[in-house]
Write a protein that binds this DNA or RNA. Structure first.
Lengths: 361, 361
DNA sequence: GGTGCGTTCCAAAACGTTTTGGATCCTACC
DNA sequence: GGTAGGATCCAAAACGTTTTGGAACGCACC
């Protein structure tokens, strides 16, 4: 027999479809003995409810969707695997499955979004990599569709549920560590795109600098397009071969930090003796490289589990909960101290004094 | 209005549900003018067919499933992101979505498999990381359910569709390169688990050695549990601090190769001058590490696209195609020549002669 | 005028499930 | 003996779609 249905069970048991259905669901409506009989036969023939039938009548698909952004240059998100594993873990614990909606390069992400929402293929959505202001968020809020985001938007942080990494705090901590180690000449190497994670990390650094209120502190900034490795390498090369080379570099991501290490090696700049580098992400490569990169771990997997929980609360509870008091969670990244940072080098000019750093503008 | 249905459209257009449905599907039995009218209104109200209704009547869910193995120690598959991106790419091009079934640690993977197959949530399945003999494959063959696997099983390669990397060939090539560079003392560092990719790679190496038929060639082997990094490091340390240390190490995976590089550095063994190392996988870390690792690129993304194509052919075409002449594809990995391999070092004993290597057993 | 055919439309059934609103029978109680 | 109420079961409707098997109409042809 192909797939057994409720009707097959009903016939075999000489019961009605209703009774079989309610027996399986455990309603007190059906006699205990009958319930046992039903369950036994169901188990024996390996009955599994057809999900299309189920979701047609319940209005629930049992799926949570994730929009998979297919980038124009085919770049693989290094966190995707970890993130998905976490989502899967969080979802399966509460009986849902994950569904990946891939956006073709040709059609816009918004079209895919609409298709998913309107077709009822998913009961809720997870959005990643939100932009500072994000059209997807607006659309979903407008539709009243349950969703959570990994990362915040800038403008209106309170209108929907999110989980985010506290990048501002991490960058402030990184700065404090380096400052305490005597560094005064900083550089920030970042990207050229209005991603909100960039905004928070950069702001965190700037606020930490401002809080010190030390005129000796200088900050150079370099921003290049996110997926243009060549431009990035060039910018870092320029930064490091500069007369006013910084003694400490904060990289927006490990990917950038690794390039900093590479270019430092290229220019025979000793890390960490002459240059301290701190990244963010804790990529696997960061542990293998020499010197091993000091960085922050985002706990991507935990973040994803948290997002799954948040979303399921939204779906299972009252969906309008989102509008009333959306849940937010800021995850505290862990500093992974490794070998790429250390005390500031003595400057070439042995001036001794503190505020007397003539190479600064 | 919530989600518009065919009935809403029909009422608005003063047509029957049938006509609207067939108009949208483009059947010739609705007048061209009507068809245009239908399409216009559908687009205007943003009609998207409800997928539960659709799949209930068509028997197709529109989903392809992937079983996500949740490992007991929570290890993240480093290829998952790339693999999924490829799958998504291959599927979206032909109008399907991907669905991830996570297996809880508690329930066995087989239970999840059965649930997916019987519930009709997926029209086909992708299996990864097949074991030398795999219960999942047996089950699906038995059920006649469409599926493809990434990797082959050992025993019966011809009963189902697969795409695999030609690991045997890669390891043979790696051996030939090292042999031509003068290496005679080899080691293979591998895992302790009956994964079929291990089998093929190891066999490829052994056959290449046999083909040379050179009694001067020796091969030491080390196998440790797959996810026990400590045991692995220890085994590699032992191997390299051994009196009869090899001059060339072939690592089953880059993850292993990186540990070899790490331990070589620990023991002050210069790579590649004193030790050549070749890996397999082309992990991102392998490019960043010093010396950069020579390895093979598996083209995971292309592999995944190929799997998607194969599976959709199976689903859309005749499913029994699988039994008659299942499609196989062997992907040729690319050698990525980097800095971790080179000519064999002169041995300490300057014996000059060829077959006169007294430290060998 | 009847026949046949092509065009355009539609009512109804079907997919498999859950839920609603009883129906039936039995027991207990007055 | 009649009735209330509990226990157990079920027929039918509903979810939204696709497909089957016509129906209705107009036109051309003999």
């Amino acid at each position: 027999m192909a797939r057994p249905t409720l009707r097959h069970l009903a016939e075999e048991l000489d019961l009605s479809i209703t009774t079989v259905s309610r027996g399986l669901a455990g309603y007190s409506d059906v006699a205990a003995a009958t319930r046992v009989r039903i369950r036994e036969t169901a188990a024996r023939v390996g009955y599994v409810p057809n999900s299309a039938g189920q979701s047609l009548v319940t209005g629930r698909s049992g799926f949570v969707g994730l929009l998979l952004p297919l980038r124009d240059p085919p770049v693989i998100d290094p966190f995707l695997g970890e993130f998905l594993t976490g989502l899967g873990e969080g979802l399966v614990a509460r009986g849902r499955d994950l569904f990946l909606a891939t956006a073709q390069a040709s059609q816009s992400e918004m079209e895919v979004l609409q298709r998913v929402v309107e077709s009822g293929r998913a009961d809720g959505l997870v959005l990643t990599r939100v932009a500072e202001s994000d059209a997807r968020v607006e659309y979903l809020l407008d539709k009243g569709f349950p969703f959570v985001t990994h990362g915040r938007t800038i403008d209106e942080n309170l209108r929907h549920c999110w989980v985010d990494t506290d990048g501002a705090d991490a960058f402030a901590r990184a700065f404090d560590i380096l400052y305490s180690d005597g560094h005064r000449d900083f550089a920030l190497v970042s990207i050229d795109e209005p991603q909100s994670f960039r905004r928070f990390r950069e702001d965190g650094l700037r606020r930490a600098i401002a809080a010190r209120n030390d005129p000796a502190v200088s900050l150079q900034q370099r921003r290049t397009p996110r997926f243009d490795q060549q431009a990035r390498t060039q910018a870092i090369y320029d930064l490091l071969s500069n007369d006013e080379r910084p003694t400490a570099v904060l990289a927006l991501t490990d990917e950038i930090a690794l390039t900093v290490l590479e270019q430092a090696a290229e220019l025979d700049i000793a890390v960490p003796d002459e240059l301290s580098v701190i990244g963010f992400d804790n990529l696997p490569a960061s542990a293998w490289v020499t010197p091993a990169l000091t960085t922050f771990d985002q706990h991507i997997r935990d973040t994803a589990v948290g997002l799954a929980d948040q979303l399921l609360d939204l779906i299972d509870g009252n969906a309008s909960n989102s509008a009333l008091s959306p849940s937010h969670r800021l995850i505290h990244p862990d500093l992974i101290q490794r070998a790429s940072h250390g005390p500031a080098p003595r400057r070439h000019k042995e001036s001794g004094g503190e505020g007397n750093r003539d190479f600064m503008s």
